[in-house]
Write a protein that binds this DNA or RNA. Structure first.
Lengths: 347, 347
DNA sequence: GTGAAAGCGCTAACAT
DNA sequence: ATGTTAGCGCTTTCAC
């Protein structure tokens, strides 16, 4: 943008001093006399001078900008992550550029290229659903670009990541159902290639084991596609069973949505006839009052932590030029309970 | 970002030619011999050369970046607008920087400053809920920054804007209810300082007038705060009336959510006992299946149109240096019907 | 305490 | 067909 921008030269000319003096005066350099400083600052104020960040970035080979790649901005969870990132970035003097991969590996690759071209100081990445090869990431890491992964992480020991403690969250949710008197708890499983799917199943199993409830594989249903329809038909199958489950633990939103639809259409009531617990990341978070008990994912906190780690990496690297030690942050979930009446009902 | 970046100089040195020749070869300049071009392009490919956008921006006084200010990214509507903006921007060779005002005037002001400092080529703005003074906008416009407003617009004849045709949308929704056999249609009104509130009421009244249904002020309820509770208590009042409404037109999401809750708690059914139509921008859009008939807001299209207008402005200005003619785009809503069974029921 | 000069990476006159 | 030079706005040695 050219337009009417005031530069350091303009101030220098008007004051009859050199651009370097103006530059120093503006940064409160100790060498500059108080009078000069005063004159410069006043004129800068008057002319509405704002430094040209583009020139600054070129000069310092540092853009003070973080690049972010998320699968989709429309997901409530990811938009809260963004707010967390911005919160930390802004107060540390960094700007943020957000790109969406739209769950596509191809887009993820071009996003990384675009961010690299923009010379961002580092990248915060949550992998697309399609990403199962990592050359594009490795190549960019090899160029020395600091990266921190969040939520859908690249599982390599050399980079930092921030993830939700899915195992504990799933365990807590399952224990809650057990505490409410449920004993036949079905599990709706997510896409098998995602790490979270495994974690959530494990938490579920741990809870059952600790409570001496046998794990019944017949009521662990696979929902690999992540669609509502899938969750619905899985639930319909569950409801048709002779000894139907008294609770459903849906490990992702579409599965939970589908489960609720199926239950409603069967004329049953939640949670009286069958309790439902869901993980909330896309849909439910957007509703001020999720319709069922849910495991809340700390998106804002995740954004904050990821940004903190990245900024630390960037600043360590620019100082010492040493490789930063990768860190992993595990964030706790929070159970939002809406079926606490169930306990009494069951007894 | 410094790190291992390859520059034009590196290519020039390695090939024993000058940087300008390399630059020209890369842009397929007609003066350069085919052999040189080939050599340069091959080496560039091999070294993984990517142009430094920061240097380019400084050189051309053009960043090829659009700045966007939205009230909140978590709103489904605004996140679809962003996707629309990106769609058009990327294919025209522009990057996009998104900022959130969080519905705060102060944040809006600092966002504008930050975007100006980043020397974006133009700005796309949807005003915060707090914005009722416009000096910050005027000052930036005066500096020659192209601006296009969308959804929550600055109503001045000198700048371009893209808005939803709320009047027609509201009218269509109300006519739909009338067509379904409803005659006592309540209206839940939004915050009075927003233009959309007036538009939606007007559309509602037009529909009633055209259908020879008298406008009954007793069932036009004000919901100035935009909270769910408010919509709920307004609806509770409506349901208590002797001759209670057979339909509710909720002009915003929280009001619609509140209405639905109140109806459910009163043991009534939607749409059999009482039909509900809502405007969908925040919540419902996030659900793949909104629970009621709703007026869909074309967010993606709005983003596209706004970006198109802005880019045209930028490019006209940089060529002719003439002031662009402001344009206003009115976008049609779309009625998503889920209560079509009602008609028969009523007859 | 201040100025002159160089350079970040790139491009576009202006040479040759 | 290619090289030289200057400059976008800013900072930072190195002079004085």
């Amino acid at each position: 943008m050219k337009y009417n921008q005031v530069t350091i030269k303009d101030i220098a000319r008007e004051l009859g001093i050199s651009p370097s003096t103006v530059s120093r005066a503006l940064k409160d350099h100790p060498d500059i006399s108080p009078e000069t400083k005063k004159a410069v600052n006043e004129l800068a104020e008057k002319l509405n001078y704002t430094p040209n960040i583009v020139a600054l970035s070129l000069r310092q080979s540092k853009t003070n900008t973080l690049g972010v790649i998320i699968p989709e901005i429309v997901h409530f969870f990811f938009s809260t992550v963004i707010s967390g990132i911005e919160d930390v970035a802004y107060s540390a003097g960094y700007n943020v550029i957000i790109t969406q991969s739209n769950e596509s590996l191809l887009r993820e690759k071009t996003d990384i290229k675009a961010l690299f071209n923009s010379r961002v100081d580092g990248m915060l990445i949550s992998l697309s659903r399609e990403t199962s090869t990592f050359e594009h990431i490795d190549a960019t890491l090899a160029k020395g670009v600091p990266m921190v992964f969040f939520d859908r992480v690249y599982d390599t020991p050399t980079s930092s990541k921030v993830v939700v403690d899915d195992l504990s969250g799933a365990k807590e949710a399952t224990l809650h159902l057990i505490e409410q008197g449920c004993t036949r708890i079905a599990h709706l499983e997510g896409p098998p290639n995602l790490g979270i799917t495994k974690q959530r199943l494990e938490g579920y199993i741990e809870a059952l084991n600790e409570s001496n409830i046998p794990v019944n594989k017949d009521i662990i249903m696979s929902c690999p596609l992540g669609t509502i329809e899938e969750g619905k038909s899985a639930t319909e199958a569950l409801l048709k069973m002779d000894n139907r489950p008294d609770a459903i633990f849906a490990t992702n939103d579409p599965a939970a949505m589908g489960a609720m639809q199926a239950i409603k259409e069967a004329g049953l009531k939640i949670p009286q006839d069958i309790a439902v617990v869901g993980f909330s990341n896309w849909f439910f978070g957007a509703l001020l009052e999720p319709p069922l008990t849910s495991v809340d994912q700390p998106g804002f906190e995740m954004g904050q932590e990821a940004a903190k780690l990245l900024i630390r990496q960037i600043e360590v690297k620019s100082k010492d030029n040493s490789e930063p030690v990768p860190e992993t942050k595990l964030l706790k979930t929070r159970l939002i309970i809406r079926d606490s009446s169930l306990k009494k009902g069951k007894k």
